[in-house]
Design a protein around this nucleic acid. Structure first.
Lengths: 239, 239
DNA sequence: TTTCTACTCCCCAAAAACAGCGAGGCGGCA
DNA sequence: TGCCGCCTCGCTGTTTTTGGGGAGTAGAAA
């Protein structure tokens, strides 16, 4: 690990890729270029319906999904509350389930050193970009220091592509709300009751209800809570 | 704008800064180095209690806050639903309020060209990093193309520091929701009634209420709708 | 071991939301 | 001019949700 490898070509490739298979190729190429064990982009979906590309052995990927490991994986838990990239060593590996998980991972070919970058997109999207290896702490420190910034950019580009593919799969249509409806939805989302909202907008509660109903209708929502949730996830209101 | 300016020193400075004033100095230095009009890091807070550092004139910053412009600012609305950096030209500036806002901005010294990078952190944190200038489309295209990647990294570093300062100010760690609570909040956000949620989780409606209440308590929410909105904006649930 | 959190169940009265009906004024658009 | 969307206000009644209580289990952590 003497000289630093130039990673700009990786970004170029990421920019011009248009398939998930292409992303996987790039992950493999990056792994080989850095001479490390694994490179993983992992979209963490709340439902567990996960998606990404990885150089991990299939057996491990399958086991991870089967056992719903994303619920207990300390890397995910840890990265979920942080912003900056994190070395696996600084995570909390105490606890029975964590230790068992780690053992299982190591036995499936995952290296003992890891460096993960959390990435977040619109609507609460969350993903991880991880590089993994098996080496001494000192060597690993040098690698992560040397490539830290490049990896942030690469993570960003991976996620950009993943979001692109996903939006192709589910094209959204959204009708906009009227200004007054936006006011109402926003205040409701902030926790005010209908009476409070009516008062703070200086309208009668009856009028307020008309807004709620029309917003609900436009959004195709089943009830007020659903309308709020829909407005938020479509970015119609910002709370 | 012939030769490209090296921006790595900016990252070094960002790494070693420990005060908000330091960030502002760096923003000014970056503006001068790129020879553009403005550089803005803007933390968009849920309440409108905004925070950041900017080279915009004070008059504009004040006006922006007074008028709650963050609610109608097309840059914010647009970036909030996207992941990749965006040129202001590709945003939707039709609409009366948008046009009035743009006029107001231009009259307060904001340049007509802009390039904004959305950044997201834990708990639904959202911020924007913007570079702004007044020039022709072609010149602006060259600038954003040349510095696009650097700006992503700089945005990332700005946000890292901002989060660092903020966590010093508010050491309170928001307790996360239990798996069952997440299930409940998710299903409620999808519009199901309590009876439906209870049935689909195979628990009694009474038990369901306990989850809702404990989630509400943990989130400091005033009612169920507020709890849903809070869960979503903190990224605890995804709908 | 003890303590803690997560999960499950139960009651009741008051408040809120829902669903349906109606009305009129204002402004933009064709 | 007529149509349409937006804003405003009113009524009645039913259903759902919400605010407090309390209590017991199991499993993991300290």
């Amino acid at each position: 690990m003497g000289t630093k490898v130039e990673l700009n070509p990786v970004l170029e490739e990421l920019d011009s890729t248009s398939t998930l298979e292409g992303l996987e190729q790039i992950a493999i190429a990056l792994r080989d270029r850095l001479e490390i064990r694994h490179v993983v982009y992992h979209w963490v979906d709340s439902a567990g319906d996960q998606y990404g590309c990885t150089t991990y052995p299939d057996a491990w990927v399958q086991r991870y999904q089967e056992r719903n490991y994303h619920r207990i994986d300390p890397v995910i838990i840890g990265c979920f509350q942080r912003f900056h990239p994190i070395d696996w060593k600084s995570l909390d590996w105490s606890g029975k389930t964590s230790k068992a998980f780690l053992q299982d991972a190591l036995q499936h070919g995952v290296g003992n050193q890891g460096y993960s970058i959390p990435i977040r997109g619109p609507n609460g999207q969350f993903a991880l970009f991880t590089v993994n290896h098996s080496c001494t702490d000192e060597v690993w420190r040098q690698i992560t220091q040397a490539y830290g910034r490049d990896l942030i950019l690469i993570a960003h580009y991976f996620n950009r592509k993943a979001l692109e593919f996903e939006s192709n799969r589910q094209p959204e249509v959204s009708r906009s709300l009227s200004p007054r409806e936006i006011d109402v939805m926003t205040l409701l989302a902030l926790g005010y009751s209908r009476a409070q909202v009516a008062h703070s907008l200086s309208i009668s509660e009856h009028t307020l209800r008309v807004y709620i109903e029309s917003a609900r209708f436009k959004l195709g929502a089943l009830n007020t809570t659903h309308a709020i949730a829909t407005s938020m996830s479509r970015g119609l209101i910002v709370v």
